[in-house]
Write a protein that binds this DNA or RNA. Structure first.
Length: 439
RNA sequence: GGAGGCGUCGCAUAGUGGCCUAGUGCGCCCGCCUGCUAAGCGGGUUGAGGGUAAUCCCCUCUCGAGGGUUCAAAUCCCUCCGCCUCCGCCA
């Protein structure tokens, strides 16, 4: 939900933002109109309701007077007054109901119209679409496998040799875009989890194991039921959703709460499975486990004073980089363009790891500043400088298991198909330094 | 899955159709008093939206959530959610 004040005072700014995202500008005018209508209808209802209240307050004592009256004369007089009031009151009641119904409809329409608007884009975000990102930094040096004198194996091949990834059986049991991690593959996930969690804890984040199945309100509040809805798994029988990221249950963790401002920033790190339908990506990244319907992910999530959001965003990015640095994976950092932001994000930075078999950088982490967009929907507020305001929310990937496993296997492979583990990971792998093919 | 009970202001509790503008106690905040502290005294203390430029003031909504009955709902009816107890099943 965008700030209503901005929508009312400066709709042009909202229009610009919609334009930058490549979304429908006319939605802004629809929202402005619906919002104005809501206020008018609300005012009408309030006035007539106040009238009704005063009337009812007169009826109460009069009713008592009729009952307590000592002689018939008195009783009749009170009764006559009562009858008169009652008749105007019952007429008023109909009008109250009508006004209330109108106000309710107007409110629902306004909520829907305003809810259809994506978050305001940070003016610093690059202009353009998916291809128009700005490369902020290149880190590390991709290896020259030709110079080393051997042909690169991709993660599917390495996964087979090492008996780490079983895609065939994944397909047999669950279909395409599913896999098993086996042996050292499974161990790798546990090791990455341990390493990610210990780094996050060292940085002061609170570890969380969140539910991966949530109610519609949580999905809605985080902004995943808009244009991203087709990628979400829904359980029809129970009206529940499988989360596509721990961002959803972590954001909703404090929903409908007023959090103590002294406790801000609240920083969490969650581990959860992630489920994605990948509708609309048929034929894209079909090989291996790069794009799958399910994977596990360690996700960071922060609630903070809106004034600190930009600095907090940088902090999340630096923690993502710290993790990739420790794994000795070459990567680049990009500033995602306005047209490629999700509905909730005002700004987004991705880290893209070098994938030798593809000879290009591919997204492994992503951190978004959602500003107050999610917290307005989820009603997460804090009393800051005497004002109760929606807090800022930010999220960032620490370790998306499948993609990090791909990056490790491919970047650290040797001519014989073995993989040398980055030093930082070894303590979490029982001290071994190399994954070796077994016959 | 079956049976029963319960959801009221930060906490505890009162409140079975109008005197509820939700009382009381505790906690908390402000002030007074007081060598200091405690006690005592006075006031304040749910949240949201709106009238307003506004911390004054006024209005509407808010007693788990949403509907309904009524001139009038914390109170009556319906649906849902959550919690507790017992039984069954289960990791």
């Amino acid at each position: 939900m965008i700030d209503l004040k901005v929508l009312r005072d400066d709709p042009e700014r909202v229009r610009q933002s919609q334009r930058a995202r490549g979304e429908d500008e006319s939605l802004v005018d629809v929202a402005v109109e619906a919002d104005a209508d809501r206020r008018a209808k609300g005012l009408q209802f309030e006035q007539i309701r106040a009238e009704q209240k005063t009337l009812s307050k007169q009826i109460g004592p009069l009713n008592g007077a009729v009952k307590k009256a000592t002689d018939d004369n008195e009783r009749q007089q009170a009764q006559a007054q009562l009858d008169e009031l009652m008749s105007s009151a019952s007429q008023l009641a109909d009008r109250v109901k009508a006004a209330e119904a109108q106000a309710r409809v107007a409110d629902e329409q306004a909520e829907e119209a305003v809810g259809a608007l994506s978050n305001l884009v940070d003016p610093d975000a690059p202009i353009g679409g998916e291809e128009d990102f700005v490369e902020l930094e290149l880190v590390g040096q991709p290896r020259d496998f030709a110079a080393e004198g051997f042909a690169v194996r991709d993660h599917v091949e390495l996964g087979e040799i090492l008996k780490a990834i079983d895609i065939e059986r994944g397909a047999k049991v669950s279909g395409s875009r599913f896999y098993y991690l086996t042996g050292v593959g499974a161990q790798l996930e546990f090791a990455l989890l341990g390493m990610a969690m210990s780094m996050a804890s060292a940085n002061g984040l609170t570890p969380v194991i969140p539910p991966a199945l949530v109610k519609p309100s949580a999905m809605e509040g985080t902004g995943f039921l808009g244009q991203a809805a087709e990628n979400v798994y829904r359980l029809e029988a129970d009206d529940m959703y499988l989360v596509g990221t721990a961002e959803v249950p972590l954001a909703a963790f404090h929903s409908n709460e007023v959090v103590d401002s002294a406790a801000l920033p609240l920083r969490y790190v969650g581990y959860s499975p992630c489920f994605r339908r990948e509708a609309g990506s048929h034929g894209k990244d079909t090989r291996g486990i790069f794009r799958v319907h399910w994977f596990d992910k360690v996700e960071m999530f922060v609630f903070c004073d809106p004034a600190d959001a930009v600095a907090e965003h940088q902090r999340l990015l630096s923690w993502e980089r710290e993790f990739l640095d420790a794994l000795e994976i070459p990567y680049r950092v990009i500033d995602v363009a306005a047209g490629d932001l999700g509905a909730s994000a005002a700004r987004k930075f991705d880290c893209e790891a070098w994938i030798p078999s593809q000879e290009r950088y591919r997204e492994v982490t992503s951190t978004s500043n959602c500003d107050q967009f999610q917290s307005r929907r989820l009603k997460i507020r804090s009393k800051i400088d005497g004002q109760t305001v929606p807090v800022a929310t930010l999220n960032g990937t620490l370790c998306a298991m499948t993609r990090i496993i791909i990056a490790i296997l491919e970047n650290h492979q040797q001519a014989d198909g073995s993989v040398v583990l980055p030093e930082a990971l070894r303590p979490f792998m029982g001290g071994i330094d190399t994954l070796r093919p077994t016959s």
